[in-house]
Amino acid sequence: MTEPVRLTDIAELAKVSEATVSRVVNGKAGVAAATRQAVLAAMDQLGYDRPARSRQRNAGLIGLIIPELNNPIFPAFAQVIDRTLTLRGFTSVLCTQSPGAATEDELIEALTERGVDGIVFVSGLHADQTASRDRYTRLITRGLPVVFVNGYAPDVKAPFFSDDDAAAVQLAIAHLRELGHERIGLAVGPSRFVPSRRKAEEFRRLMAPVAGEAEVERLLVNSLYSVEGGHSAASFLLDEGCTAMVCGSDLMALGAIRGARKRGLSVPRDFSVIGYDDSPLIAFTDPPLTTIQQQVSSIAAAAVRALLDEIAGLPVPSTEYLFQPELIVRGSTAACPSS
C-alpha cells in the first residue's frame, strides 16, 4: 500500500520548511507568492490532494489568445504567462486560433462575455499589417486592458512586447560570416507579418553590400512558418547556390535540414542552418539546432506585469518594448565548405 504524502515530503521537494508548507496547506497569510507556488507545485508532483483552504482567492480572469499549439514556441509563451498570472492570483483562460477554427473576433467576444479583466494577445492579428485594428481600438475604448506580444501596430494605443527581429538577423548573419559563408539565404513567413518584414529589412541591409542590392532579393524567401515551409525554402535557396540559411522559426529550420538531406547533403558539413525561437527540445534534434533564442520568460513576464498594472489603474506607456535575443550555437552550423 502506498504511504500517504507527508508535509515533510512536500517541504523537501519545495526546499522550504515544514512550517511554511503548513501555512500554505491551511491557507495562512505571510507566505511569498513564489514560495507558495513552489509548495503547491510540490503538492501536485507528489499527488497530494490540495485542501480547499489552501486555495488562493481568485483575483480575476485574464484572456490569453495565441496561435495554434503545434508550434512549440506558443505553448512556451502560454506556460510562462499562465504561471506569472497564477503567482498574482489570476486565472488565465486560454484560447487558440488555428485555421478553420474560431476567429480572433469570436474569441474576443467569448472572453468579454465571460467578463475577463484583460487580454494578452500573442502573435495575433496585430502582427498582420493587412488586418483591421478596429477590434483592438474598440476594446481599449471600452476600458478593457490589453497587451500584445510579438508584432507592433503603432496606431493601437497599448503596450507591445517584442523580440528584436533586426538584432536576431544581425546575430545570425555575423555568426555565418565568421564561419566564411557569403552566399546566405533567409527564409521567413509571409511578408504581411511584422516580424517577417523586420527580419527581411535587416537582411537586405546587411547582405546588400555582400551580394548586391539586386541579388539579395534572390536570397530572400517568404514561405510558411512550418517544416514544409522550411523544406520548400531550402530547396529554392540551394538552387541559388546558398551554403547557409537563416530561418524565421525552428520548425522551418528542421524542414530546411530535411530538404538538404533529401539532396544528399550533410548538415552542417555541406550546408549550415540557423533557426529562430529556441523552442523546447530543439537542443535534442539531429544535429542539435543552432538558433536565435527568444527571451520568452522576460517578454511574457513583462507583458503580464504591464497588464496587471493597467488593471490596477496604473499608467502604462503605449509603446513597444524590444527584448534582445541570444545566439545559441549548437551543431547545425560549421565553416563554409569552400573556405
Rank of each mutant, 00 (worst) to 15 (best):
L224I: 14
T112C: 03
V122S: 13
N70P: 15
E215R: 15
E104K: 02
C95D: 06
S92R: 10
A172R: 08
S272I: 00
G30V: 01
Y321I: 14
L186N: 06
C247L: 12
P72I: 08
D9G: 00
V80S: 06
E104D: 03
R83D: 09
D105T: 02
A172Q: 04
I108A: 04
A29T: 05
V227L: 12
P72K: 07
T20C: 12
G60F: 02
E12K: 08
E320G: 09
T290G: 09
A303D: 00
D49E: 15
G30F: 01
V246L: 15
T96F: 12
P280S: 06
E240G: 15
I73N: 12
M43P: 02
V304W: 01
R269L: 05
R23W: 08
L254C: 06
C95K: 12
L186Y: 07
I328M: 11
V147F: 06
A256S: 04
M1F: 11
L46R: 00
S338M: 02
A301Y: 09
L237N: 10
L281Q: 14
N71L: 07
L111W: 02
A260N: 03
V122K: 13
R269Q: 11
G212E: 06
Y136R: 13
Y152D: 13
A300L: 03
A110D: 14
R53N: 12
R197W: 10
G241A: 09
H126S: 07
S162N: 09
I140M: 13
A234K: 05
E113P: 08
A301D: 14
G63F: 02
A306H: 01
G100S: 10
E109N: 06
H175N: 11
T285Y: 10
I140E: 11
Y152L: 15
R23F: 08
E3T: 14
P337Q: 00
S92G: 12
V210T: 06
T2Q: 07
L111T: 02
T137V: 12
K28M: 05
I65G: 02
I108F: 02
V146F: 06
A174C: 13
A11D: 09
A110W: 12
R133D: 15
A234Q: 03
D164T: 06
L144K: 08
I62H: 05
F160Y: 04
G27I: 04
S235Y: 13
H181F: 09
I274N: 03
E217N: 11
R204K: 10
S266M: 13
A256V: 02
S318G: 09
F193V: 05
L40I: 11
I173P: 10
Q45N: 07
T112S: 03
A200K: 00
D286F: 08
D155A: 14
A38G: 13
G255N: 01
R23Q: 08
A256R: 02
Y276M: 10
P99K: 04
G185M: 07
E113W: 09
L111E: 00
D155F: 11
P280T: 06
V80A: 07
T2M: 07
A334H: 04
A208M: 04
A302P: 08
N222G: 07
A214Y: 12
V122D: 08
A208W: 05
G180M: 12
L144M: 06
S339G: 15
N58M: 15
E104G: 04
C336L: 02
S191P: 10
R305S: 15
L85E: 01
I311G: 00
V16P: 00
